[in-house]
């Protein structure tokens, strides 16, 4: 069985909204990376090719520009990705395919790809797993192409990127709005806010992210255990 043009066309059709988001965001990442980290376009492209985690990559630009430690960068990446560590589990049962295809499905799974896969039905007489694999692969390609174009543009044209890092703030704000819609319970948000403000007051801004997330997660586990995980 191969990837027929018809399968490709239907996967491409449903993923257009994600491509329209990933290409410009990737472009912004490439531009910001070249300008603020000061390393060549190859590194921006390489990061998109092998890391493929948008929020972590934007965060890494700030950390690399500040000369942060490798362990700190890796820990921040892990924590950032772990926020959706639980959502892929439900898909594992559905993917009955070769190990190689499974590896790519897991590696390419992002928020947006997950949302597409779980909300769409494949067209009739199309193999579901191949449909998912193509959707994920097209989104990956859009992100990498955007990063490459942005990084090359950033090297070719002098561009004032002051304020472009707000992309990350806006991205998190949008994801937070989605969480508020979904969770409809103020407690976890207020708990996190309190943990963050306490961390800033006690430890200042250095390592704020890791300290506050650790503190907040301890509180979440304590609260969950107290309530019997209900």
């Amino acid at each position: 069985m191969g990837f027929s043009p018809r399968l490709f066309a239907s996967a491409f059709h449903v993923t257009v909204p994600v491509i329209l988001g990933y290409f410009p965001l990737g472009f912004a990442f490439g531009l910001l990376f070249v300008d603020q980290v000061g390393a060549g376009w190859v590194y921006a492209f390489l990061m998109s090719l092998i890391v493929f985690a948008g929020a972590s990559q934007f965060l890494a630009v700030g950390l690399l520009a500040a000369g942060a430690g490798i362990a700190e960068i890796a820990a921040a990446t892990f924590v950032l990705n772990a926020r959706h560590a639980f959502f892929g589990v439900s898909l594992l049962e559905r993917w009955r395919t070769s190990p190689l295809k499974k590896i790519f499905l897991v590696y390419w799974l992002t928020d947006e790809t997950y949302a597409l896969i779980t909300s769409l039905k494949p067209p009739p007489d199309v193999e579901e797993t191949d449909f998912h694999l193509l959707i994920a692969g097209i989104n990956y390609a859009a992100w990498c192409a955007g990063s490459l174009a942005g990084a090359l543009a950033g090297e070719a044209i002098a561009f004032d990127t002051t304020g472009l890092d707000f992309t990350l703030t806006a991205l998190f704000a949008v994801l937070l709005v989605e969480q508020v819609r979904r969770v409809r319970e103020p407690f976890p948000f207020l708990l996190a806010l309190a943990a963050g403000l306490v961390t800033l007051a006690v430890f200042g801004t250095a390592n704020m992210l890791l300290i506050s997330i650790t503190l907040a997660l301890i509180l979440v586990v304590a609260d969950g255990a107290r309530r019997g995980w209900a």
């Binding site: 950032l80 926020r83 969770v183 976890p188 943990a195 963050g196 800033l200 992210l209 979440v220």
Partner: peptide
């Protein structure tokens, strides 16, 4: 409970 907590802290960060 984890995603709301982490996203709130990321915006604050």
């Amino acid at each position: 409970a984890t995603p709301p907590v982490i996203l709130t802290l990321l915006v604050l960060y």
